[in-house]
Design a protein around this nucleic acid. Structure first.
Lengths: 221, 221
DNA sequence: GCGATGCTTCGGCGCGGACCGAACCGTCGT
DNA sequence: ACGACGGTTCGGTCCGCGCCGAAGCATCGC
């Protein structure tokens, strides 16, 4: 038999507080060095090194050596999805969970979820795309949508060829409503970021709207 | 700070092999007694009792006392979703994973994933619903779909009012293609089961097609 | 009432693993 | 060449927790 324990092995990798802190830090989508991960987790570099080795062996992290640094990132969107589901479940059922509330208002308005926009801005983007008819109710790209996304420099054909679904709804952690994930979600995020319309706050998953007048047609505000 | 360790707490519940076996057993959608879970996990009743207490406290399981038995089930579809994501990730990246192969052929053709149909039959259902135009490509119920589902005694309005998404694509574990989850996926499964067209194999997640001639319009075979 | 059955609590054993200090290896700067 | 710095490996300590045997409560059947 033994059909089970593999999922336990993966869960075990997330089950340690230090490793969990590293993984949530990597949810910001940036690669981090081993030392930064150690600081993020609040452990010494030796300890962090052991944790990292385990997560790489388990296929959750991939590392790239660059000079004397070693940059690490989540191995793919599926890992990020798993972590997001976990956060969602914790948020809904967590017993003594400290409500995010206004504690981190920046995280409520706009945050990055691995590689796409989340928070209330993410929900606004999702709703506006549908309201403007760029996506239909089932998150399928429409004719006008095709034109608008191509105009942003997004290669829809390439997205459709990829294994990753182009459009995926992702239930938002703070807003408890859908926002847009998937390949298109990621492509839109990088398009906005490349143009400087939104910028990441360093050392956090929060995102700032740098050019509200340019973003307004996309967020409906 | 301390933003992390909550997800570690939940992951820790899945990280133990015995608990993981219990959870996968409950993925069949049936409530099981504490003793059955102990047998499924391969541990003594006392040990199982401790595990169960932890998982109930953690909000993953809910229990209902009935006479001298205690029936336990997953606390909701979100827990099942989390477990399914975990299995998917394990399957894709798992190192020494024993391929399911023809070992359990019944599990390949039709199996239940918490409360809806999966396996190749689940994929066939998904594809046929779209091919017959009951769902569009974005998994939105069409006019003909509304009629057909209502004909099966499914209350679409109620599904749409529910918090749970009506249609959700779930990447299949064995087929690696989408099948239909969400409220409609669950409703279709119970409709087919109530009519006796499909039956669950006792003690397994496998499902048998009892009335192929009735299921054929739904599976396209 | 009685014993049988299902489940839980308690106590104690033993393994796994998280952690750090110290030492070691590579790479970058000067 | 040398030292500084990032990262890893090695040993040893210690706590957590998974496990079971035995005993304690409930509920069912007779």
């Amino acid at each position: 038999m033994a059909d089970g324990p593999d999922i336990a092995r993966v869960a075990h990798l997330i089950a340690d507080p230090a490793r969990a802190r590293m993984l949530t830090a990597l949810m910001a989508g940036h690669a981090l060095t081993a030392g930064e991960l150690a600081a993020e987790a609040g452990v010494t570099p030796q300890t962090a090194s052991g944790h990292i080795a385990k997560m790489v062996a388990g296929g959750m992290l991939v590392g790239a050596k660059q000079g004397r640094h070693r940059y690490l990132r989540l191995s793919g969107p599926d890992v990020a999805d798993l972590l997001e589901s976990l956060m969602e479940l914790v948020d809904r059922r967590g017993p003594a969970r400290t409500r995010p509330g206004p504690a981190e208002p920046a995280m409520r308005t706009a945050r990055i979820c691995y590689d796409h926009l989340a928070g209330s801005a993410g929900v606004a983007l999702h709703d506006t795309l549908i309201a403007r008819g760029l996506l239909d109710a089932g998150l399928v790209v429409t004719g006008p949508g095709e034109a608008a996304f191509t105009d942003l420099g997004i290669d829809l054909a390439a997205l459709n060829r990829a294994r990753r679904p182009t459009c995926r709804a992702c239930l938002d952690w703070s807003e408890r409503r859908d926002h847009l994930a998937g390949g298109l979600g990621a492509a839109l995020f990088t398009a906005f970021e490349d143009r400087g319309w939104i910028v990441r706050r360093p050392g956090s998953r929060a995102v700032a709207i740098a050019a509200p007048e340019r973003m307004s047609p996309w967020l409906g505000i």
